[in-house]
Nucleic acid binder design. Structure first.
Lengths: 358, 358
DNA sequence: CTGAAAGCGCTTACAG
DNA sequence: CTGAAAGCGCTTACAG
């Protein structure tokens, strides 16, 4: 392939001038520039990032390490939508004229050191470490010397982290349900050992409290457990208990569970949303928009998290992080209201008339 | 960071010997090796792939360009499961001691030349070009000088390509349905302008013919169109026409459509699978295993396609492709039989007794 | 089994 | 606005 020397010779200038035309780091005479550009085109010149990296000591590479692209062996295969996270990060990184290097752990943690080694050989300028679900992690020590941003996870060392606002998301969902006239709000959760689940139940409880509604234990049931063989049986029983508490709406731990609940409710002959409303979490559009009726869901803002994480990492690399900037940032997102939730007209009217009464 | 010279000095050898220890490309005295390895550890030495690339003229990088990681603007958001494709390719590439560089077109074709430029700057040894859905593409010319394997697509220039066996997949599905006693087999398709859809209808027809069943036009209806606003209305009408042809099972163009059909059938009070069986395509587990009942589906073998594509690309790079090897390869996959399809016992018995009759 | 010299293709640091 | 020299950190090609 043509080198900068070939271009320089063809254009009748020095290599350094070719370099200046490419990088725009110093003024170049218009005519000189044009002849250089012509030479680059004629020779089909493509600069070598290896040479550039070696001399400048800046690789322009950002490493992202993730287990997203994997058949995960943990709680559920929550993985796929994390792709939005990759997309969000990539957009920001492209804009900074850098290249994102993505390594997939394939779901097995023991591969991560090797992936990091590869990143280090490529002299990545920073690392985005993405977890498959909201959880605590501990980073291998050999990363510590360059900027890292955790995404969808956090560690004991308080490494900068971008997290979803699980508490706020569930709050907004439940608060919105109350505003739509619901007061008996069922909730099929995951076990509290799941960090996201604990936070969401907190949000559920806060929304009830904010609206003066008592927390009824019967309305909140665990709808799934890790590695249960017959998942539908467990969910069936949990749904049974929730229904006995007479809800007008059932919130589900995630959209996948909501999809199952659709099947179970219909098996019982209960119409959605006419007889009972249903809501999910994640706003996983592949599911939410194709269920019938379409599913109301609180968005897990992966794209925004990816973008924010990339932005933060770039600022860490550039040294432009504000001194008072918190290490952990939480990303909120709106609820996507769709037809699976029906407004309880009577109650809403009642609320309206109350407001107008005094 | 420590360089090979630092390691050489610490170990009391020449840089070339350190290189030999790292690469194992020539015999090294056991004691020498050990002192070099100790020095590498002590100094926390990580070789620079940029320097290695520049001198050896081999980057060890494979580029993958994809629109998978995107909100696609075409027919439907088929995107997400292509991640399995990335996973399949990465496993193979890791084993060859290379690194996969993934670039996402974000769904917009105009970004692709820039992504290719980045790949060329990094001197990728080959390129995997992944389409979001089975289709024809045309490659930008500037790729032509290095090995390329198309995945999920093909071009007029007969570039090596790995494709899903859509015809065979639908054949296996329909043939299996017949073996399970079904003879009136409805099919909600996508328009034939979709290559995959055309092939699958071919497979459907071949399976009927192979089993001596007449093709009934009334049983085959288009269930979705691109950019239709109210997608459920169109599907509702198509489903209506199919039902009038009195099928015992309905095949759907993909799992997402099957998910919608679940909703529509239940709205009509038709029980799955007791009154009618349903099958999908893609075996998109996020959907298929969480619908109730779980959905029978023909697998779109993305992981296998990714692995095969990577394997082929590596052989193209290594020059070990067999001369008689076809440029286009098709990947087959089994059908995942689940509870949404019910065996028609009566008919099956009838078939059995027939065989035993003469 | 080991080493000295050169060079891969850029950018840095300096000079003019 | 432009250029000559040196060097980034490896591996190649050669020699012993």
């Amino acid at each position: 392939m043509a080198t900068i020397y070939d271009v320089a010779k063809a254009a009748g200038v020095s290599p350094k001038t070719v370099s200046r035309v490419m990088n725009g780091d110093a003024p170049v005479n218009q005519q000189t520039r044009e002849s250089v550009e012509r030479a680059m085109l004629d020779l089909n010149y493509v600069p070598s990032s290896a040479a550039r990296t070696m001399r400048s000591q800046r690789s322009g590479l950002i490493g992202m390490i993730t287990g997203a692209i994997s058949t995960s062996h943990h709680f559920e295969d929550t993985g796929l939508p994390e792709i939005y996270l990759v997309q969000g990060a990539q957009r920001v990184i492209d804009q900074s004229n850098r290249t994102l290097l993505i390594a997939d752990s394939g779901g097995s943690a023991e591969r991560i050191p090797a992936l990091l080694q590869t990143f280090l050989e490529h002299r990545v300028e920073g690392i985005l470490y993405v977890a498959e679900y909201h959880r605590e992690v501990s980073l291998p020590l050999n990363v510590r010397d360059r900027p890292v941003v955790l995404v969808n996870c956090f560690d004991a060392a308080d490494t900068p982290a971008i997290l979803p606002d699980d508490e706020g998301g569930q709050f907004a969902l439940v608060d919105g349900l109350v505003k739509r006239g619901h007061r008996r709000i069922g909730y099929l959760t995951l076990p509290q050992s799941q960090i996201a689940s604990g936070l969401r139940v907190d949000g559920y409880a806060r929304a009830l409290a904010a609206n003066g509604i008592d927390y009824d234990e019967g309305l909140v049931q665990i709808g799934a457990l890790p590695s249960i063989v017959n998942e539908f049986d467990l969910l069936w029983d949990a749904l049974d208990r929730v229904l006995r508490a007479e809800p007008t709406v059932i919130c589900c731990a995630n959209d996948k569970m909501a999809m199952r609940v659709y099947g179970l409710l219909r098996e019982r002959g209960i119409a959605i949303p006419q007889q009972i409303s249903v809501a999910g979490y994640d706003d996983y559009r592949m599911i939410a928009e194709h269920l019938h009726p379409r599913l109301t869901s609180a968005e897990l803002p992966y794209a925004a998290m990816g973008a924010l994480a990339a932005d933060k990492l770039l600022r860490l690399i550039g040294g432009t992080v504000k001194p008072n900037e918190p290490n952990r940032e939480v990303v909120s997102a709106p609820v996507a209201w769709r037809e699976s939730v029906q407004t309880r007209d009577g109650v809403v009217t009642q609320l309206h008339s109350r407001r107008k009464d005094p």
